[in-house]
Simulated scan of single mutants.
Amino acid sequence: MDWFIDTPYFGILISIVMFEIGLYINKKTKIPVLHPLLISIGLIIGILLAFDISLETYEKGGNMISFFLGPVTVTLAVPLYKKIDLLKKHTKPILIGIIVGVFTSILSVVGLTKLFGYEDEMIYSLIPKSITTPIGIEVSESIGGIPSITVVSIIVTGIIGAIVAPFVCKIFRIEDKVAKGIAIGTSSHAVGTSKAMEMGETEGAMSGLAIGLAGLLTAVIVPILLIVLD
């Protein structure tokens, strides 16, 4: 058994199996907070601790899954292509919405962390919380953050976004499909986009667009903004 644990197959297999279990629990209970990703993370941590398996051993396969995050994000262009006419029709409000969302995300993190006296390294780690993981890690490293903390903040943000998005739209009576998609994608990247796709094809397409643009804008804006705010 030890030989299998030391191979990349262990990390890959345990990740897939635990996520499937999380998916099953989520579908059976229909409780929003029991998100498949959250459940699978908890189960994997529990197994590693129970059997005294190091994180490095798990990451031999876990990192291989992470490698595919970039290509998977690119596939979100498919539903967007199907809605290209809608994009052309609403180009201006879509761009304004994404830009406002990016600035709101960055400034809220900087403002709240400064208010509670966080150290700069922690602030820089939390700033990319609303963008997709591959871009978020690069942004965090470039500005002096801690990538591991950035990844955790991105995952938590995505899960929270996926859980609360339908309720927020309902409470504030947001019925426009384009607005829903842009808001979800800008604030909670790919995990939120999975919920947007469940809400509808238009919501999913717009959310996928927001992921890419929000990531690019954040990568460009953050270094400049930090200089201005310093």
Rank of each mutant, 00 (worst) to 15 (best):
K114Q: 15
S54Q: 11
I160N: 03
K92F: 10
A162L: 03
C169N: 09
I21Y: 08
G144I: 02
Y24D: 10
A219W: 01
G192C: 07
V33E: 04
T218S: 14
V74D: 13
E119V: 11
I53W: 05
I224H: 04
T104H: 03
I160L: 12
L225F: 05
I154N: 12
M206N: 10
E59G: 06
K114G: 12
G208E: 03
R173S: 14
P79D: 07
T193D: 03
L95W: 02
S188I: 06
M1N: 02
V110S: 08
P166D: 03
S140P: 01
S194M: 01
L216V: 09
K27G: 03
E119Q: 09
S54V: 01
I25Y: 10
I184H: 12
G46H: 00
F68Y: 14
P128T: 04
G11M: 01
G111S: 15
V152S: 11
V191T: 14
V222R: 04
I155W: 08
K180D: 08
G181P: 07
F51Q: 00
I31L: 10
G161V: 04
F67V: 02
T150Q: 02
G185V: 09
T75E: 00
F68Q: 07
V109D: 01
M199P: 01
P71V: 04
V152R: 00
L217D: 01
A196Q: 10
S207R: 02
S207M: 10
